[in-house]
Amino acid sequence: DYEVGESVTVMDGPFATLPATISEVNAEQQKLKVLVSIFGRETPVELTFGQVSKI
């Protein structure tokens, strides 16, 4: 299970290999909103559970 505030690594898509912090969890739809730090700015990205891995 994923929790808000948890650190994960993006495994898929254009942000693969980047660390991210979970900002929202939708367990019903198996989706997460995460904040990816790009060029010093936090960018919100919506991903599925399968696109991230716990650190």
Rank of each mutant, 00 (worst) to 15 (best):
L47T: 03
T43Q: 12
V8R: 01
V4A: 06
E3Q: 14
V25W: 03
V45Q: 05
F49K: 02
E42R: 06
V45D: 02
G5Y: 04
D1T: 14
K33Y: 09
G50S: 14
L32F: 04
G50F: 11
R41G: 09
V10N: 00
L18N: 06
V52Y: 01
S37K: 14
L35A: 05
V25H: 02
E6A: 08
E28Q: 11
N26E: 05
T21W: 10
T48R: 09
I55R: 12
V36Q: 01
E3D: 08
G13F: 03
V45G: 03
E28L: 11
G50H: 11
V8S: 00
E3T: 12
E42H: 08
Y2L: 05
V10S: 01
Q51E: 06
K31V: 11
V4I: 11
V52C: 04
T21S: 06
I22S: 01
V52F: 02
Q29W: 08
L18S: 06
A16P: 02
G40M: 04
V36E: 00
P44Q: 15
R41K: 13
D1W: 14
S53K: 13
G13R: 02
T17Q: 11
E24G: 07
T17I: 04
M11H: 06
I38P: 04
D1C: 13
T9F: 14
V10E: 01
A27E: 11
T17F: 13
L32Y: 05
S23D: 06
L47Y: 06
A27R: 14
E46T: 10
S53T: 11
P19A: 13
I38R: 08
F39C: 13
V10H: 01
V52P: 00
R41Y: 10
T21M: 10
Q29K: 10
V45W: 07
V52T: 03
P19M: 15
V45R: 02
Q29C: 08
P44W: 15
E28T: 10
D12P: 02
M11G: 04
Q30G: 13
P44N: 11
S23I: 15
E46Q: 07
P44R: 11
T21D: 03
F49H: 03
G50P: 06
G50R: 10
Q30V: 04
V34S: 01
N26M: 12
I55G: 10
V4E: 06
F49C: 03
I55V: 12
F39N: 14
T9P: 01
A20I: 02
L18M: 12
T21A: 05
A27F: 15
F49W: 08
Q51H: 04
P44G: 09
D12L: 09
V52Q: 00
S7A: 12
S53A: 13
V34Y: 01
V4D: 03
A27T: 12
K33G: 05
E24T: 07
A16E: 06
L35H: 07
Q29T: 13
S53F: 07
F15Q: 02
V34F: 01
S23K: 12
I38A: 09
Q29A: 12
L35C: 09
P19D: 08
F15N: 03
I55N: 11
S23A: 13
L47W: 01
Q51P: 01
V34N: 00
E28W: 08
I55F: 10
L18C: 11
Q51M: 08
L47G: 00
Q30H: 09
T43H: 13
Y2R: 02
